[in-house]
Nucleic acid binder design. Structure first.
Length: 721
DNA sequence: GCGACATTGTTTTTT
DNA sequence: ACAATGTCGC
């Protein structure tokens, strides 16, 4: 067997990892060091050299995108179809397992998946149903709590008797939520994993089957695994099946949602004798960029230790721009994009990275006026749109009338006279007899316990659903979807919405029919699910892109988090201000601050050719002007790599504040906020704020070298520049 | 059931 | 500031 296609494209460290002896292996793979390549080549290696069938390989990722990429690269390298191979996300693979073993997992055959929005809505219902005050038990927080517990492998029953009153109440809600899911045959995202884990633990037949089947398990982005996912992996491995894990502790940015970098350490403990490799040669960035990234990340204490290097040239210095405010910052960035394009590059090679989504707005506005095409990542995705979810809710209700959340969603959409009062009676009845809303509706309408009007409306709704269900039974999927949209009145309902909005929704519904038409039912993957169920699961597990892939050459706007795994020739990281990035919520705890620093590290290492940084001296946030000092991360980068960009001219209109100090400042000292000033010892800086009056008047000045300071005007002898 | 006003919370995101 | 809810009156 010729292994040269597998080994030739690899460097020494990669080759060692790929050809490691069978057994647990951990690869610490720095940014841009060929992590996916190692994973893919490792699969090829074990298949070709150790003669493991591709069907004996289980490869797990976090996102569908990563799974798809892995699949296609394995196919290209192995020259076989990857159809039989188990490559997928934790959730996708868990789902697949639960569909096969639904009986052992104690699920109804047609169980459906709740996405986070569905989960949130159901939780609100549950909390209301328990007659609890939403203000005291915020559904968002409860949702957070439940998911966090599930991610730790904990059920409500484990929590009922612990903690204080609050804790117990949370556990009570958790328990009621479990029951609601149970009754309606619903499974949320975390539940997919937890159910699977419990299934594997309680059914020796099942786990033995899979341990015999999978001879190799690989996992990507290992630093992002939470406790549940790690337990899931260990369960599959037992003490026989080797686990090949690839990750980078320096890119762990999801601690806030339960990811445990410590799993990297646990790996070495739980798999004694595990092999350990480091990939430190970077193929992406210039030396300047890597030196900067290394310099920054060295400020973190809890690290495995790793230092990226490259054979690449030194490259451009890192640019730093101190903007007056967020508008000035956006204008500067727009200029940079225009300049980049003028030099013969593509716009799509530029990424603007920010800490929080709200920051995208200014950039959008300025890009719009400057005529720069752009694309914002994140936001509502296709299958998350209201009109899409409404249609899917009808489909779900047809498949399973006990699906209470779907019932709630569409019972009065379009409005058919079933209001809050009727629903309250329905819910109470359903609760009393522990039946679904669907059954409750049927019973109450028959028992004449409702007003004639309400009973009629309910009967009408139910017969509509039954009728559409019958009509649709034998139709191909896309016709089913089209028929549902038509017959339920959704189409005309949205058509009535005024303006562009209604049309967009209609277009989206048409797009949904297309998506259904293009949906491949794969018996290999979907087992004996119905095509509709498979499509519904697909909608929940792969919510689709935020915006359809744009053919136009667009500048890319996204959060630092969503930039992970991507690369761009030019990366512009904006809003580098203390309190914004690192975010103020992270400043109290060292661990969280270090995570912010890793986020910055991720941002910098996305760049191939150049990094540009910027911050604003004043920024309008939550409606008020804020003054943030420059981010500490700027100071943590090696100073010699940074070139300050001087502002061109003073573009920003001066800010006036209607307080006496400002007037005095302006009149007596010739100062105003935003004014550049010079101080005898501190050098040059910018006035950020003022307070007090008369001889107590003070100004806050942000000095270039000395940082920001409060000075008493009378003594400071500031010189206006 | 819908439009007008009030209240509320604004880090990051995938599945 | 602002968007996204919730409440109230018709």
């Amino acid at each position: 067997m010729d292994v040269s296609p597998i080994l030739d494209p690899l460097n020494e460290a990669q080759r060692q990892a790929v050809t490691a002896a069978p057994g647990a292996t951990l690869v610490l793979a720095g940014a841009g060091s060929g992590k996916t390549r190692v994973l893919v080549h490792r699969i090829a290696w074990v298949c070709h050299v150790e003669h493991v069938s591709p069907y004996g390989v289980l490869a797990v990722t976090f996102t569908n995108k990563a799974a798809a990429e892995m699949r296609s690269r394995v196919e290209a390298l192995l020259d076989v179809s990857s159809a039989g191979m188990w490559v997928g996300t934790f959730h996708g693979l868990s789902h697949r397992l639960l569909r096969v073993h639904w009986r052992d997992a104690e699920l109804p055959e047609t169980f459906q998946i709740l996405d986070s929005e569905d989960q949130y809505r159901l939780l609100r219902r549950v909390i209301k149903g328990m007659e609890l005050d939403e203000a005291k038990w915020p559904p968002k927080q409860v949702q957070w709590y439940i998911n966090a517990r599930k991610d730790e492998g904990l059920r409500a029953q484990h929590l009922m008797n612990n903690g204080d009153h609050t804790e117990r109440q949370y556990a009570q809600i958790y328990s009621a939520y479990e029951e609601a899911c149970e009754r309606a045959g619903l499974v949320d995202f975390a539940e997919l994993l937890l159910r699977t884990l419990e299934l594997l633990r309680k059914c020796p037949d099942v786990i033995n089957h899979y341990r015999n089947r999978f001879h190799y398990i690989l996992v990507d982005e290992f630093q992002d695994t939470n406790a549940l996912q790690y337990a899931w992996l260990r369960e599959f491995c037992g003490d026989q099946v080797p686990l090949f894990a690839v990750g980078d502790d320096d890119q762990s940015i999801y601690g806030w949602r339960g990811a445990r970098v410590e799993n990297i350490n646990h790996f070495m403990r739980d798999f004694p004798g595990a092999q350990f490799y480091r990939l430190e040669q970077n193929y992406r960035s210039t030396r300047t960029i890597l030196t900067a990234a290394n310099g920054l990340i060295e400020h973190n204490s809890a690290r495995m230790g790793k230092s990226l290097w490259t054979r690449d040239a030194e490259g451009e210095p890192i640019l730093l721009y101190a903007a007056y405010n967020e508008q000035d910052e956006a204008r500067f960035v727009a200029d940079k994009v225009i300049d980049w394009v003028r030099r013969g590059h593509r716009r799509s090679e530029v990424a603007v990275l920010y800490r929080s989504n709200a920051q995208s707005r200014v950039f959008e506005e300025v890009f719009m006026t400057q005529g720069i095409p752009y694309r914002v990542y994140g936001g509502l995705r296709f299958f998350e749109r209201a009109e899409i979810k409404d249609t899917l809710a009808y489909l779900r209700l047809i498949a399973n009338p006990a699906d209470d959340p779907s019932f709630e969603r569409v019972v009065n959409l379009p409005t058919r006279g079933i209001g809050e009062r009727t629903m309250a009676i329905l819910r109470a009845h359903a609760k009393d007899y522990a039946i679904s809303l669907w059954e409750a509706a049927a019973q109450l309408a028959a028992a004449k316990e409702l007003t004639t009007r309400a009973a009629k409306a309910l009967t009408h709704f139910q017969s509509l659903v039954v009728q559409v269900a019958r009509e649709v039974e034998e139709l191909p999927l896309h016709d089913q979807v089209a028929r549902v949209i038509e017959r339920t009145g959704l189409k005309s309902h949205y058509g009535r919405e005024p303006g562009e909005k209604g049309q967009t929704r209609i277009d989206n519904l048409a797009e949904l029919v297309n998506a259904a038409r293009g949906f491949n039912f794969n018996p290999e993957l979907h087992g004996d699910m119905s095509c509709t169920d498979a499509f519904l699961a697909h909608a929940a597990l792969e919510a689709g892109e935020g915006q359809g892939a744009s053919w136009e050459d667009c500048a890319q706007l996204m959060t630092l988090h969503s930039a992970k795994g991507l690369e761009f020739p030019l990366v512009i990281i904006v809003g580098l201000e203390q309190g914004l990035f690192p975010h103020k919520m992270s400043l109290q705890e060292l661990g969280r601050l270090e995570e912010e620093r890793r986020l910055c590290y991720v941002g910098i290492t996305r760049a191939r050719e150049q990094v540009v940084l910027s911050y604003a001296e004043t920024r309008r946030q939550y409606g008020a002007d804020g003054y943030n000092p420059p981010s500490q991360f700027i100071g943590e980068l090696p100073a010699e790599l940074i070139t300050q960009v001087r502002p061109r001219v003073q573009v920003r209109p001066p800010l006036y504040r209607g307080v006496d100090t400002c007037k005095r400042m302006t009149v007596d000292f010739g100062l105003k906020i935003g004014q550049r000033v010079a101080h005898a010892t501190f050098g040059e800086g910018v006035v950020l704020d003022c307070e007090g009056a008369g001889s107590h008047a003070r100004v806050q000045v942000n000095f270039e070298s000395a940082g920001s300071k409060w000075l008493v005007l009378e003594y400071a002898k500031l010189e206006a520049l």
